[in-house]
Amino acid sequence: ELVLALYDYQEKSPREVTMKKGDILTLLNSTNKDWWKVEVNDRQGFVPASYVKKLD
């Protein structure tokens, strides 16, 4: 499943990933309501769920 980055996000820990507004990311896990695991540029990590939106 793919998600769209709604905002820029700068990683604050090694478990997170940086994304730019408009990026298309692969959603790996959305079981946590606050932090979703995504893959971007061959890196996996977490981003705030409120910063991304699922693409239909």
Score class of each variant (00 low, 15 high):
31 T>F: 09
54 K>G: 05
54 K>P: 10
3 V>N: 00
8 D>G: 06
50 S>R: 14
26 T>E: 08
9 Y>C: 02
55 L>G: 04
48 P>Y: 03
52 V>A: 03
36 W>T: 03
46 F>N: 04
45 G>T: 02
8 D>H: 06
37 K>Q: 12
50 S>E: 09
23 D>M: 15
37 K>R: 11
10 Q>H: 14
6 L>Y: 03
13 S>M: 08
34 D>S: 12
28 L>Y: 04
23 D>H: 05
14 P>A: 12
18 T>R: 06
3 V>M: 07
14 P>N: 11
31 T>N: 12
9 Y>D: 00
27 L>N: 01
7 Y>M: 11
1 E>M: 14
14 P>R: 09
47 V>N: 00
35 W>K: 02
46 F>I: 07
51 Y>Q: 05
46 F>P: 01
5 A>S: 05
31 T>I: 09
48 P>V: 02
32 N>D: 14
1 E>K: 12
37 K>P: 01
49 A>D: 02
32 N>I: 05
40 V>A: 15
16 E>N: 06
7 Y>V: 08
41 N>K: 14
1 E>A: 13
22 G>R: 03
29 N>P: 03
24 I>H: 05
26 T>G: 09
1 E>H: 13
34 D>G: 08
20 K>S: 09
47 V>M: 00
17 V>Y: 04
14 P>L: 10
21 K>E: 07
26 T>Q: 12
47 V>E: 00
52 V>L: 15
25 L>N: 00
9 Y>F: 07
50 S>F: 09
19 M>I: 14
33 K>E: 10
18 T>W: 05
2 L>D: 04
3 V>E: 01
30 S>R: 09
43 R>N: 06
38 V>A: 02
2 L>E: 06
32 N>W: 08
7 Y>I: 08
9 Y>L: 01
50 S>K: 14
19 M>L: 10
4 L>T: 08
39 E>I: 12
15 R>I: 12
15 R>G: 14
24 I>F: 06
46 F>H: 05
10 Q>E: 15
53 K>M: 15
42 D>Q: 12
1 E>C: 15
27 L>C: 08
17 V>G: 02
42 D>S: 13
48 P>T: 01
11 E>Y: 05
24 I>A: 03
30 S>C: 11
54 K>C: 09
13 S>H: 12
33 K>F: 09
43 R>Q: 08
32 N>L: 09
35 W>N: 02
45 G>L: 05
11 E>F: 06
3 V>F: 08
19 M>K: 00
37 K>I: 14
9 Y>K: 01
41 N>P: 10
24 I>G: 00
24 I>S: 03
37 K>M: 15
4 L>A: 07
56 D>A: 12
32 N>P: 05
21 K>R: 12
47 V>L: 02
36 W>F: 07
2 L>G: 03
5 A>E: 01
37 K>H: 11
4 L>E: 11
38 V>N: 00
48 P>G: 01
11 E>V: 06
11 E>A: 15
23 D>L: 06
19 M>C: 06
22 G>K: 02
34 D>F: 15
7 Y>H: 11
25 L>H: 04
1 E>Q: 15
8 D>A: 07
16 E>D: 06
50 S>G: 11
31 T>Q: 13
15 R>V: 10
54 K>A: 08
50 S>W: 10
11 E>P: 15
22 G>A: 03
11 E>D: 05
8 D>I: 02
45 G>N: 00
25 L>F: 07
51 Y>L: 11
43 R>P: 00
35 W>F: 07
26 T>R: 15
8 D>T: 06
10 Q>L: 13
53 K>T: 14
5 A>L: 02
20 K>M: 09
4 L>I: 15
10 Q>G: 08
23 D>F: 05
26 T>P: 15
27 L>A: 02
32 N>Y: 08
2 L>Y: 15
44 Q>W: 08
37 K>A: 08
17 V>K: 01
9 Y>S: 01
41 N>T: 09
14 P>C: 11
27 L>I: 06
23 D>Y: 06
33 K>W: 09
6 L>C: 07
6 L>T: 04
25 L>V: 07
44 Q>L: 07
36 W>E: 00
24 I>Q: 05
27 L>P: 00
16 E>C: 07
23 D>W: 13
16 E>I: 04
8 D>E: 05
44 Q>C: 10
38 V>C: 05
26 T>W: 14
51 Y>D: 03
47 V>D: 02
43 R>T: 08
48 P>M: 04
1 E>D: 11
25 L>I: 07
23 D>S: 09
31 T>Y: 10
56 D>G: 13
6 L>G: 02
6 L>N: 03
23 D>A: 09
3 V>T: 03
14 P>T: 09
36 W>H: 03
20 K>E: 06
41 N>S: 11
18 T>E: 04
18 T>F: 05
47 V>K: 00
2 L>F: 14
